[in-house]
């Protein structure tokens, strides 16, 4: 297939996944910010929302002090923020339009309809703090991402067009989960350090909610929310679809499919195998003893390197 087509499919999936993630972060943060001040955390929640979507620096540069309204506007509507929801949907749709021949009619229809609906909501919304309209947009972003994913899964041929889309999705997802963990590493402490109280409890459940893992947590651990188990769930549990290990399991699978079809392996297959092996051969205690922050930083670097290697190997010629 055309290298540019593969590139568009890869980025289409990344943008859809990112729109979903940003919407979930905004939703969770609104919930957290609505807690009574006495029980809620300090007013840092919007700062960490910006940070966990990689937008804090751009925000500070453009707007200065973090305010809730400013953060929401930046994360949802601002065209100057490449990761804002409207930007993700616009860019996703532009990528889809560039390669609509590589998409099934259902997938294209889903993306295009979602984009039209977002434009309608965007146009109708006069007051940017109108929480009902905002809720609709956040729901739309989550649903759009799910629908596009479902359409691809159910209707696309299992060939390289599908595999490059899946790669984009899991690389983006791994990046998102890792960033979320990194922003919260100061409250995700090992079993040996007893800390926290109600305040941290809300923070911990917020993390789980952000990746819709609160119910999953209960099913996996049958235990009250403990920070080290949250880290375990999001890093090492293969049954958790947003965990780093699950993402890399998929990444390796789809890179292998491509390598088999093309009859050639390369650097990206090697990196993916290396990262997956490391995740498979570690425990959450080992992660904590080396430092969660250090572990995540190294992971994000590897993930970035893999993204660059996939581009080099397949997407740019």
């Amino acid at each position: 297939m055309l290298a540019r087509t593969a590139d568009n499919l890869y980025w289409l999936a990344r943008y859809m996944e990112r729109a979903d993630y940003v919407a979930r972060i905004v939703n969770t943060t609104r919930r957290l910010a609505a807690l009574p001040a006495a029980r809620g955390p300090d007013r840092e929640e919007w700062r960490s929302a910006l940070s966990s979507t990689g937008a804090l620096e751009a925000y500070t540069e453009a707007r200065g002090a973090v305010t809730p309204a400013g953060a929401i506007d930046f994360l949802v509507f601002d065209p100057a923020n490449p990761s804002s929801i409207v930007n993700c949907v616009d860019a996703g749709r532009a990528n889809a339009r560039a390669v609509r021949t590589a998409l099934t009619a259902e997938t294209w229809d889903t993306i295009n309809s979602g984009w039209l609906e977002l434009n309608r909501l965007r146009g109708a919304r006069v007051d940017r703090t109108d929480s009902e309209a905002l809720g609709q947009i956040l729901d739309l972003a989550v649903k759009l991402s799910l629908d596009v994913d479902g359409c691809s899964y159910r209707t696309m041929l299992r060939n390289d067009a599908y595999w490059f889309g899946r790669l984009g999705l899991y690389i983006e997802r791994a990046d998102n989960t890792a960033r979320l963990l990194d922003v919260k590493y100061n409250i995700l402490l090992p079993e040996t350090e007893v800390v926290g109280g109600t305040l941290d409890y809300f923070q911990w459940t917020a993390i789980l909610r952000a990746v819709s893992a609160l119910t999953a947590y209960n099913w996996v651990y049958h235990d009250s929310v403990k920070p080290w188990l949250i880290a375990d769930l999001l890093v090492l549990r293969p049954e958790m679809p947003r965990s780093l290990i699950s993402c890399y399991d998929n990444i390796q699978r789809f890179l292998d499919a491509i390598a088999r079809a093309y009859g050639r392996r390369g650097a990206s297959q090697r990196i993916a195998r290396h990262v997956l092996t490391r995740l498979e051969n570690t425990s959450i205690n080992e992660v904590f003893s080396g430092g969660l922050h250090e572990f995540i930083t190294a992971f994000v670097e590897d993930n970035d390197r893999l993204g660059a290697e996939i581009a080099e190997q397949y997407l740019i010629h």
């Binding site: 055309l2 290298a3 490059f164 997407l315």
Partner: peptide, 8 residues
Amino acid sequence: YMRTTQGP
């Protein structure tokens, strides 16, 4: 030639 994921 066209540029494909498998080369020209």
